[in-house]
Amino acid sequence: MKCDDARAALFARDLSSEAEAHLASCARCRAMSEEIRRVSDELDDPALWEEPGPDADSMVLAMLGGGASSPGARRSGARWTVGAAAAVVLVASIGGFLLGQRHPADWTAVVMGSESAPDASGVVRGWNLATGTRVVLESRGLAPAPPGHHYEFWFIGDGMAFSGGTFLDPDRVELLVAVPRRDFPTLLVTLEPTDGDPTPSDVWVLASED
């Protein structure tokens, strides 16, 4: 028996007497046998054989496919009607209610930096609720808001803007927007001066692709 065949039998844990005889007489195969068994044991690990859920593949591919177009063409300066529900900002907290959430998100969107934050990017995951939409924003490349300013998360659609809340540290934030996502295709994060103006400022820092 050749070394390759004996090692394959060891790897399969299906040792014939011929394979055992080879291992007994071949010092090199014998020296490797313990490691072969250890690597073979990896094959028993269920993690090796589990597959992502049916939504995970499509979610990742949609996220990557959608995010690959140029984010640099974002215009600022648009004017919005602020939805009445903007007054019903329920939660804007770091480390709030969704941490530990085990259910996959209902949707995922990539948000990319605009001219004012070209190195920024992020991903927004959302859970559709009867009372609105829970969202988790995770971003990179954005510094904490400077003094006298804060970030604000918006749902935008058909000229309407609904705030999901304000925050200072944009790395990871969990929010509740009081409207369903389906009517608001655009996600937006603005840098807002603390001036009491309820409409989105012109300083867009992150936005989803339309």
């Binding site: 390759d4 065949d5 394959a8 039998a9 790897f11 020296a31």
Partner: peptide, 21 residues
């Protein structure tokens, strides 16, 4: 098929075995 598969795997993963043997 099992023999062929395990022979292929043993060959592809031989660097792991040799690295730690």
């Amino acid at each position: 098929r099992s023999h062929r598969a395990h022979r292929r795997l043993a060959d592809m993963l031989s660097h792991l075995e040799e690295a730690t043997a």
